[in-house]
Design a protein around this nucleic acid. Structure first.
Lengths: 99, 99
DNA sequence: CGTGTAAGGAATTCTGACACG
DNA sequence: CGTGTAAGGAATTCTGACACG
């Protein structure tokens, strides 16, 4: 959609923007925490959103969390979000509650 | 400032986003129409604003304009902008006109 | 588990030049 | 003038592995 989500940044630039090593960035991908696109040639491309996400991941790692825990927390957060949306939708369908 | 102006995109990706050849992109820089940054290694980095500017340049070229003419028009536009700002500033200083 | 590193190779980019028109 | 291309080289990125802890 917006510039923020266009995958156009190569890993070296992401390393500069985040302060993380390319090794760390690739590792977080291996652990399914980040999902860059690939060019035809196979090089990774990240978005600014990815950069922000990486900074959050790095902070959680610094706080002693393991990548598996970070992954679980994200999933729970995502599940809550979906559940809330569903509840909102049902309330709206039943009572026409706006916003 | 914003994501739009961060110089983080390499020339190959810019080529994809604009549909221009890397040769064309480098040439417009040679003609002083575009100003990418450079990494320590010397590779060019562009912003989304640069991508937009390139698309505009390409359209003007298609319309038969020469790079020197495009450059002049941009300068004139820039000069008008500065002049208007100055006038606004003087009006405001003299009469306190807001906005 | 998270990260560094050396290894070999492939993809990407760079510059200056020649070509065409 | 604007753009394509072949040339040689340098910078960038890739993967799989070994190391440490």
């Amino acid at each position: 959609m917006s510039y923020k989500d266009r995958k156009v940044i190569s890993i070296g630039t992401v390393s500069e923007l985040t302060g993380l090593s390319v090794r760390q960035i690739r590792y977080y991908e291996e652990r399914k925490l980040i999902f860059p696109e690939r060019t035809k040639g196979g090089t990774r491309r990240y978005s600014f959103s990815d950069v922000e996400r990486l900074i959050n991941i790095a902070n959680q790692i610094e706080d002693g969390l393991q990548t598996s825990e970070i992954k679980k927390m994200e999933k729970r957060r995502e599940d809550r979000k979906l559940r809330d949306q569903m509840i909102r939708g049902q309330l709206n369908a039943a009572f026409g509650i706006r916003k």
